[in-house]
Measured scan of single mutants.
Amino acid sequence: KELVLVLYDYQEKSPREVTVKKGDILTLLNSTNKDWWKVEVDDSQGFIPAAYLKKL
Results as ranks from 00 to 15, higher is better:
Lys1Ala: 10
Lys1Tyr: 13
Lys1Asn: 10
Lys1Phe: 12
Lys1Trp: 11
Lys1Glu: 08
Lys1His: 11
Lys1Ser: 09
Glu2Ala: 12
Glu2Ile: 14
Glu2Ser: 12
Leu3Met: 11
Leu3Ala: 05
Leu3Trp: 13
Leu3Gln: 10
Leu3His: 08
Leu3Arg: 11
Leu3Thr: 07
Val4Cys: 10
Val4Pro: 00
Val4His: 01
Val4Met: 02
Val4Asp: 00
Val4Gln: 00
Val4Ala: 07
Val4Ser: 01
Leu5Pro: 00
Leu5Ile: 12
Leu5Ala: 04
Leu5Gln: 08
Leu5Cys: 09
Leu5Ser: 03
Leu5Val: 11
Val6Arg: 01
Val6His: 00
Val6Gln: 00
Val6Leu: 02
Val6Glu: 00
Val6Cys: 06
Val6Gly: 00
Val6Pro: 00
Leu7Asp: 00
Leu7Val: 06
Leu7Pro: 00
Leu7Asn: 00
Leu7Arg: 04
Tyr8Asp: 08
Tyr8Ser: 09
Tyr8Thr: 07
Tyr8Trp: 12
Tyr8Ala: 13
Asp9Lys: 03
Asp9Phe: 04
Asp9Glu: 04
Asp9Trp: 05
Asp9Ile: 04
Asp9Ser: 09
Tyr10Pro: 00
Tyr10Phe: 06
Tyr10Ile: 02
Tyr10Ala: 02
Tyr10Arg: 03
Tyr10Val: 01
Tyr10Asp: 01
Gln11Ser: 12
Gln11Asn: 13
Gln11Asp: 12
Gln11Leu: 11
Gln11Cys: 12
Gln11Glu: 13
Gln11Pro: 05
Gln11Thr: 14
Gln11Lys: 13
Gln11Ile: 14
Glu12Ser: 15
Glu12Thr: 14
Glu12Asn: 12
Glu12Lys: 15
Glu12Tyr: 12
Glu12Ile: 15
Glu12Val: 15
Glu12Trp: 15
Glu12Met: 15
Lys13Leu: 09
Lys13Gln: 13
Lys13Gly: 08
Lys13Val: 08
Lys13Ser: 10
Lys13Asn: 09
Lys13Glu: 07
Lys13His: 08
Lys13Thr: 12
Lys13Phe: 10
Lys13Ile: 07
Lys13Met: 11
Ser14Gln: 08
Ser14Tyr: 10
Ser14Ala: 09
Ser14Asp: 10
Ser14Cys: 11
Ser14Pro: 07
Ser14Trp: 11
Pro15Ile: 08
Pro15Lys: 10
Pro15Tyr: 08
Pro15Asn: 11
Arg16Ser: 12
Arg16Gly: 15
Arg16Asn: 14
Arg16Glu: 10
Glu17Asp: 06
Glu17Ser: 10
Glu17Thr: 10
Glu17Ile: 07
Glu17Leu: 08
Glu17Gln: 13
Glu17Val: 07
Glu17Met: 09
Glu17Phe: 09
Glu17Ala: 10
Val18Gln: 04
Val18Cys: 09
Val18Thr: 06
Val18Ala: 06
Val18Gly: 03
Val18Lys: 06
Val18Asp: 01
Val18Leu: 15
Thr19Ile: 05
Thr19Trp: 06
Thr19His: 07
Thr19Cys: 07
Val20Glu: 01
Val20Pro: 00
Val20Phe: 06
Val20His: 03
Val20Lys: 01
Val20Ala: 10
Val20Asn: 01
Lys21Cys: 11
Lys21Pro: 01
Lys21His: 10
Lys21Ser: 08
Lys21Tyr: 11
Lys21Gln: 08
Lys22Gly: 05
Lys22Asp: 02
Lys22Trp: 04
Lys22Pro: 02
Lys22Cys: 06
Lys22Asn: 04
Lys22Phe: 05
Gly23Glu: 02
Gly23Gln: 02
Gly23Tyr: 04
Gly23Cys: 07
Asp24Ala: 13
Asp24Trp: 15
Asp24Met: 15
Asp24Tyr: 08
Asp24His: 06
Ile25Cys: 05
Ile25Glu: 01
Ile25Met: 05
Ile25Pro: 00
Ile25Trp: 03
Ile25Ser: 01
Ile25Lys: 05
Ile25Arg: 04
Leu26Ser: 00
Leu26Thr: 01
Leu26Glu: 00
Leu26Lys: 01
Leu26Arg: 02
Leu26Val: 11
Thr27Asn: 09
Thr27Arg: 14
Thr27Ser: 08
Thr27Trp: 13
Thr27Ala: 09
Thr27Val: 15
Thr27Phe: 11
Leu28Glu: 00
Leu28His: 00
Leu28Tyr: 01
Leu28Gln: 00
Leu28Ala: 02
Leu28Arg: 01
Leu28Gly: 00
Leu28Phe: 02
Leu29Asn: 02
Leu29Val: 11
Leu29Tyr: 04
Asn30Ile: 07
Asn30Gln: 10
Asn30Val: 07
Asn30Asp: 15
Asn30His: 06
Asn30Tyr: 06
Ser31Thr: 09
Ser31Phe: 06
Ser31Pro: 04
Ser31Asp: 14
Ser31Trp: 10
Thr32Asn: 12
Thr32Val: 10
Thr32Lys: 11
Thr32Asp: 14
Asn33Pro: 04
Asn33Phe: 07
Asn33Thr: 05
Asn33Val: 05
Asn33Leu: 08
Asn33Ala: 07
Lys34His: 10
Lys34Met: 09
Lys34Asp: 11
Lys34Leu: 09
Lys34Gly: 09
Lys34Asn: 11
Lys34Thr: 10
Asp35Gly: 09
Asp35His: 15
Asp35Pro: 02
Asp35Ile: 14
Trp36Ala: 03
Trp36Asp: 01
Trp36Cys: 09
Trp36Lys: 03
Trp37Leu: 01
Trp37Val: 02
Trp37Thr: 00
Lys38Ile: 14
Lys38Gln: 14
Lys38Pro: 01
Lys38Ala: 09
Lys38Asn: 06
Lys38Glu: 15
Lys38Leu: 15
Lys38His: 10
Val39His: 01
Val39Gly: 01
Val39Glu: 00
Val39Ile: 08
Val39Pro: 00
Val39Arg: 00
Glu40Ile: 10
Glu40Trp: 08
Glu40Ser: 10
Glu40Gln: 14
Glu40Thr: 07
Glu40Asp: 06
Glu40Cys: 14
Glu40Lys: 12
Val41Lys: 15
Val41Asn: 11
Val41Pro: 01
Val41Gly: 08
Asp42Trp: 09
Asp42Leu: 12
Asp42Ile: 08
Asp42His: 13
Asp42Val: 09
Asp43Glu: 11
Asp43Pro: 03
Asp43Gly: 15
Asp43Thr: 11
Asp43Lys: 12
Asp43Trp: 06
Asp43Ser: 12
Ser44Ile: 15
Ser44Gln: 15
Ser44Val: 15
Ser44Tyr: 14
Ser44Arg: 15
Ser44Phe: 14
Ser44Ala: 14
Gln45Pro: 09
Gln45Ser: 13
Gln45Asp: 09
Gln45Ile: 14
Gln45Phe: 13
Gln45Val: 14
Gln45Arg: 10
Gln45Asn: 09
Gln45Ala: 13
Gly46Ser: 08
Gly46Pro: 08
Gly46Ala: 15
Gly46Glu: 10
Gly46Tyr: 15
Gly46Val: 15
Gly46Arg: 11
Gly46Asn: 05
Phe47Asp: 04
Phe47Thr: 04
Phe47Lys: 02
Phe47Cys: 14
Phe47Ile: 06
Ile48Tyr: 02
Ile48Asn: 02
Ile48Leu: 13
Ile48Cys: 14
Ile48Ala: 13
Pro49Met: 05
Pro49Trp: 05
Pro49Ser: 04
Ala50Cys: 08
Ala50Ile: 05
Ala50Arg: 11
Ala50Leu: 03
Ala50Tyr: 03
Ala50Lys: 06
Ala51Pro: 07
Ala51Lys: 14
Ala51Glu: 10
Ala51Thr: 12
Tyr52Gly: 05
Tyr52Glu: 01
Tyr52Arg: 04
Tyr52Lys: 04
Tyr52Ala: 09
Tyr52Cys: 13
Leu53Trp: 02
Leu53Lys: 01
Leu53Phe: 02
Leu53His: 00
Leu53Cys: 15
Leu53Thr: 04
Leu53Arg: 00
Leu53Ile: 05
Leu53Asn: 00
Lys54Leu: 13
Lys54Asp: 05
Lys54Tyr: 11
Lys54Gln: 13
Lys54Met: 14
Lys54Phe: 11
Lys54Thr: 09
Lys54Gly: 04
Lys54Ala: 10
Lys55Ile: 12
Lys55Leu: 13
Lys55Tyr: 08
Lys55Pro: 08
Lys55Arg: 13
Leu56Ile: 13
Leu56Val: 09
Leu56Trp: 07
Leu56Glu: 02
Leu56Gly: 02
Leu56Phe: 09
